[in-house]
Computed example of a mutant assay.
Amino acid sequence: MAEPATRALALSMGDPAGIGPDVALACYAARKEWQTPPFFFIGDPDVLLARAEALGLCVPVRGCEPEQAVSIFDEALPVLPVTCISPVVAGAPDSANAGAVIEAIEAAVSLTRAGRTSAVVTCPIAKSVLYDAGFAFPGHTEFLADIAARDGRGPYHPVMLLSGPKLNAVPVTIHIPLKDVPAALTPDLVYETCTITARDLRERFAIPSPRLALAGLNPHAGEGGALGLEDDAIIRPVVERLKAEGIDAVGPLPADTMFHDRARATYDVAICMYHDQALIPAKALGFDDSVNATLGLPFIRTSPDHGTAFPIAGKGLARADSLLAALQLAERLATASAGETR
């Protein structure tokens, strides 16, 4: 029988006008049936109450300190209040609330770094809304790395892992235009991404000897130089270096033959060269239950692998599968990191 959790997960609200509140409420409402790990919501309690009413959910909400969250989780959804300064309308994002969104993320990280919570789970943000308020980062991942580096021990190299029941995939370059990928793709970047991935799969995911499959950048992995030189000049030498250091790595492989069932059985993680090369197969193979986990940070962070979905916010149409998977993965990684057994 599982031991009860001693620390709750910190769940930041994301954009309050999106489906973050919807799926958080759903995970709590079905906590017994779904075996939802104890979490507390960092966000505006009034938003939760209004959204619960709109969705027809009877969810009691109680403000508390993080240390109290586990003990009250059966009775009420624990909340660490962060107030939105502008009225929140489901489906209508407002940059006036960007400060509250950022404050919730920073609080989740701060509490986890202080050992008051076990891991960070983030609901989706709308970067365009945050940009309007002066947000200076390409995305959630880069912002989390910046927060982590405030301890003076950085910089940290965040690695995005899309983890699903059928595929683990990592993009080497993330939130940059496709036209900029070849220039950004350096041997050092590919190597560092691979070594961080291998280390965290060993230490956090309990895979003793992770098998890495590196995708080529160009069609047919460059076709011996006929379709581009990057595969032989950048990726292949990294594979050889990884092998020499005892890391199980193959590639560069043609990306169009890497993701069918037989191919996926030969590796533990696909290392992809750009955003969509990783996210298209990851979402095609596990749209509702894949999780975005950030590797390379000094704390555990997971997130549902979907966006804010403003058009369906507050309408009872959002599926909570991915947030549930993110919460469960965060608990599993936190338990492993603490050396506990469940």
Rank of each mutant, 00 (worst) to 15 (best):
103 E>I: 03
286 G>V: 05
309 A>C: 08
320 A>C: 04
59 V>Y: 11
316 G>Q: 08
184 A>T: 03
275 H>K: 07
28 Y>T: 13
165 P>L: 13
143 F>P: 02
297 L>S: 01
213 A>H: 06
251 G>N: 14
90 A>V: 04
251 G>R: 10
262 R>F: 07
278 A>F: 06
66 P>F: 14
261 D>Y: 10
13 M>V: 10
327 L>I: 09
265 A>L: 14
328 Q>D: 02
124 P>E: 03
311 P>D: 15
241 R>V: 12
179 K>S: 15
97 N>I: 10
131 Y>C: 03
146 D>N: 07
100 A>D: 01
2 A>T: 15
145 A>Q: 01
144 L>Q: 02
179 K>Q: 15
260 H>V: 08
211 R>T: 09
65 E>S: 15
3 E>L: 15
158 P>C: 13
73 F>N: 10
113 R>E: 13
293 A>G: 00
290 S>C: 15
231 D>E: 11
45 P>F: 04
174 I>E: 07
126 A>Y: 06
39 F>P: 01
72 I>H: 08
275 H>L: 07
110 S>F: 05
210 P>Q: 02
146 D>G: 00
181 V>Y: 06
318 A>K: 03
331 E>F: 06
56 G>H: 08
129 V>H: 00
213 A>N: 09
23 V>E: 06
188 D>Y: 13
100 A>V: 10
221 A>S: 10
311 P>C: 04
138 P>I: 10
264 R>Q: 12
5 A>I: 09
107 A>W: 05
202 R>E: 08
323 L>V: 04
5 A>E: 13
228 G>C: 08
99 G>M: 01
66 P>I: 15
72 I>S: 06
134 G>N: 09
148 A>Q: 07
255 A>R: 11
169 A>W: 14
235 I>L: 15
193 T>G: 08
130 L>R: 01
108 A>V: 00
312 I>Y: 01
136 A>C: 06
177 P>W: 12
244 A>F: 07
150 R>I: 05
220 H>C: 08
20 G>C: 01
2 A>N: 14
186 T>Q: 02
87 P>L: 11
43 G>Y: 10
94 D>T: 03
114 A>D: 13
225 G>M: 08
13 M>I: 12
246 G>E: 10
28 Y>Q: 03
145 A>E: 02
314 G>D: 00
15 D>H: 02
316 G>A: 13
288 D>R: 06
21 P>C: 03
24 A>M: 07
169 A>K: 14
91 G>T: 08
163 S>W: 13
262 R>C: 00
163 S>Q: 14
111 L>G: 01
252 P>M: 10
239 V>N: 04
238 V>D: 11
306 H>D: 03
13 M>C: 11
112 T>V: 03
326 A>G: 06
